[in-house]
């Protein structure tokens, strides 16, 4: 069984977000880049499965659409434990562009299980996994919080409103993962980092794809009004304000 993980290169979650060129471009100056947190959890789960199902899972590949500035992030994925990496050498224009590039690659080199994070923490598109599954005509299951593979049988747990469902599915399929899929992302160790240098990172040229949407400009959220402090000796005042001023109770 071959597993493909789609990874996105995103600013560290504590980054202060700034824009340049009249608020049309995200300012990358001084930004620390990381593997998108949900993609990293997907990768971690794939590695856990490979460790416990040695025979069944032969290979874990990560794929990324981006320029060579993403290479350190891709190397980190290899250092954590992916066997191989593919980078499609193009700047991502929108979710459809990314999904279509990955689909073209998968059509030539098929995988049994494709995992994507539910969203990316930069443009919050929530779309690549679903789009990819439709382009490949694979089934997709979203909001996975558990993925078990035993004797080539696959059991998934997906989030639904107010709970979860247990699902069985056959390969190939696209799994769109949320938090819970793996306990905690792994920190690469020295051995992993050294081994990553020797692992293959294949660069593939993009195909021509028209994007569906265009990011025009960005805005910052309006600053919040200052917090009204309430005397801890007069808690009633809080309920009074919520009732009479905010009118939400």
């Amino acid at each position: 069984m071959k597993i493909l993980i789609c990874i996105s290169n995103v600013p560290d979650t504590t980054t202060k977000i700034k824009f340049t060129n009249n608020n049309t471009t995200f300012d990358v100056a001084g930004v620390q880049w990381i593997i998108n947190p949900w993609d990293e959890l997907a990768l971690t789960r794939a590695i856990e499965l490979k460790e416990t199902n040695a025979g069944t899972i032969e290979n874990i590949t990560v794929i990324h659409v981006g320029l060579n500035t993403s290479d350190p992030t891709i190397r980190k994925a290899l250092a954590i434990g992916a066997d191989k990496a593919i980078r499609i050498n193009a700047e991502a224009k929108d979710s459809y562009f990314v999904a279509a590039q990955i689909a073209e690659f998968v059509k030539k080199e098929p995988f049994d299980v494709i995992l994507c994070g539910i969203e990316s923490s930069d443009y919050n598109g929530f779309s690549v996994g679903g789009m990819l599954s439709e382009l490949l005509d694979y089934p997709s299951v979203s909001a996975l919080s558990s993925l078990e593979i035993a004797n080539a049988e696959i059991k998934l747990k997906r989030g639904i409103d107010g709970g979860h469902e247990v699902i069985s599915i056959v390969t190939p399929f696209v799994g769109i993962v949320q938090k819970g899929i793996a306990k905690e992302a792994r920190i690469p160790n020295m051995r992993g980092i050294m081994m990553a240098k020797a692992k293959p990172l294949q660069v593939v040229e993009p195909v021509l794809i028209d994007n569906f949407t265009e990011f025009v400009s960005f805005e910052y959220p309006k600053p919040k009004a200052t917090c009204k402090k309430i005397d801890p000796e007069n808690v009633k005042e809080l309920i009074n304000l919520l009732h009479n001023e905010a009118k939400v109770i």
Binding site: I17, N124, N211, E214, F215
Partner: peptide, 16 residues
């Protein structure tokens, strides 16, 4: 308009 960067910004997007 949509939220982006996990609510740290808003993006204006054109659907073509």
């Amino acid at each position: 308009v949509k939220k982006s960067f996990t609510s740290k910004a808003f993006a204006n997007i054109v659907i073509k």
